[in-house]
Every structure is written in structure tokens, then in C-alpha cells.
Amino acid sequence: MIPQLVTYHQRRRDGRWLRLYVPVVPVALLLSPLLLVAGLAGLVACLVFRVSPVGALRGTAQVLWALPGSRFEIEQGRTAVLVSVR
């Protein structure tokens, strides 16, 4: 399953929370023209550095598929950041 929702929470120094919920699929659709360009740049990079484009695509897909469930929580003093992928 690809990531559905990326959550970003940040507690500022004044104690207020910034909460961002990023729905991955709609945002990816919105950015699809940019993703196409990035894909082409990746293909060129693979050819330049003699890396198998199919292998690179498969590896990237595996990383993307394995991302859901990741959670990073860092808190120091009054500042805190939480990134969660679901």
C-alpha cells in the first residue's frame, strides 16, 4: 500500500502547534507534471551513471510501499516535530 496521508506536527517555541495533513495521492496528482519531469531527470541520471532504470524504479517503488507506519518524533525543550506516514 502506498502512503495515503503524511502528517506533520510542529510545536513552536510559543507552545502553539502547527498541524499539516498532506493527502499523498491528491498532492501527487496535482504535482504530476513536475513528477513527470523528475522521472525523466531520474532516467537521464540512471543512463549517465549506468544504473539500471528498471532496478531503480523497482527500488524506489519498494521504498515507497514500505513507508506507511513510519513515525519520527523529536522533542527538545519547547520545540517538537512529529512526522508520521500512514
Binding site: 521504498v63 510501499w65 513507508l67 513515525r71 519520527f72 518524533e73 523529536i74 522533542e75 527538545q76 525543550g77
Partner: peptide
């Protein structure tokens, strides 16, 4: 001040 790190990474990743 106190700091806390809590990381959860899927083994599949």
C-alpha cells in the same frame, strides 16, 4: 531542556 526522540521505522523499509 529535556529532549525526546521517538522513531518507528518499518523493517520492510
Amino acid at each position: 531542556g529535556p529532549s525526546r526522540v521517538n522513531v518507528r521505522v518499518p523493517l520492510q523499509l
